[in-house]
């Protein structure tokens, strides 16, 4: 099932993110997803997230699909050139994986193989364009495909709380032009910033899923503020996380804060994208508190 059909039906689409393991067994990821994420619409499977080498996104997507979940294949341009990316998309379509999220990807220097060659032959925009070409039955070089053309729900990302919102909006417009059909955002902690962003982003007429991280501690919040692009945790949230360390450690504070952001932003967006970062078990409680 393509998630674009759900957006078209006006559904509030909830997705969450899981990362494949650095190993050969997907059992743990599948088990966690089945236990905690089976109530949501679809599960994003990251592609060597943060440039840390892991099992590929596609095989993990297949494992999740076999377990009855709807996977979204994340595809970055860091590790593969245009030939490999198109080949991967054809393979995904054959395996029945028809939800994709096109990203440029973190630089190789950010990960655990900093000496690796950064590819970036394509980028998020030209990858979306490439997927559209395949849907038309031709590859990026214009050569015809044999048989039925694939059909994807093509997603992209945007960073509403970036310190250069205009640049983000300009890039978002290019992604729409290139064929993006839905957007997932970087984690939002500041509802007001998100609402202001959506005022401008709604002109593109594409569904946007609010990105949410459950903050685990004041330390984590400060770390993200210092190191993670496009993420800003307001001081009052940091204070709240620091006020009762036990409560924060148990996830109670984080879930409350994240639920508050979701409730405030929900009228302005078309879905929710949760990056649980190991706290998958807290997702059902978060959704309950957020009233979803």
């Amino acid at each position: 099932m393509r998630i674009t059909e759900l957006f078209d039906n006006g559904e509030f689409v909830v997705t969450a993110e899981v990362g494949p393991p650095k190993g050969i067994s997907a059992d743990h990821v599948v088990e966690e997803a089945k236990t905690y994420l089976s109530g949501i619409t679809a599960v994003n499977v990251t592609d060597n997230q943060s440039s840390v080498m892991r099992m590929g996104s596609l095989p993990a997507c297949v494992a999740l699909k076999n377990a009855g979940l709807t996977p979204i294949l994340q595809l970055t341009c860091r590790d593969r050139n245009r030939i490999a990316l198109q080949s991967e998309l054809l393979g995904a379509a054959m395996l029945g994986i028809d939800n994709i999220l096109c990203l440029t990807g973190d630089h190789t220097k950010m990960g655990d193989h900093p000496g690796a060659k950064p590819v970036f032959d394509l980028d998020s925009v030209s990858l979306l364009h490439t997927a559209c070409q395949l849907e038309k039955g031709v590859d990026l070089a214009g050569n015809p495909l044999v048989g039925e053309a694939p059909k994807f729900a093509k997603g992209a990302v945007v960073s509403p709380c970036s310190d250069s919102v205009d640049a983000q909006l300009a890039k978002m417009e290019r992604k729409v032009m290139a064929g993006a059909e839905y957007f997932q955002t970087q984690a939002v902690f500041d509802s007001e910033k998100f609402i202001q962003f959506m005022e401008k982003a709604k002109q593109f007429g594409k569904p946007v899923q609010l990105g949410v991280i459950i903050p685990k501690s004041a330390g984590m919040a400060k770390f993200m503020n210092k190191n993670v692009a496009g993420v800003h945790v307001p001081q009052w949230m940091i204070d709240e996380l620091a006020a009762d360390k036990e409560k924060a450690k148990a996830g109670i504070t984080g879930v409350e804060l994240a639920a508050k952001v979701i409730k405030e932003c929900r009228p302005y967006c078309q879905g929710l994208h949760i990056m649980a970062l190991g706290w998958e078990a807290k997702v059902p409680e978060l959704l309950k508190q957020a009233g979803i």
Binding site: D123, V125, K171, A229
Partner: peptide, 19 residues
């Protein structure tokens, strides 16, 4: 750093490159 030709990535923080 990524030689992108279609606009910025999401990796800039305070105007500085992630790399």
């Amino acid at each position: 750093s990524k030689s992108l030709v279609n606009g910025q990535c999401g990796g800039a923080k305070d105007g500085k490159c992630e790399v």
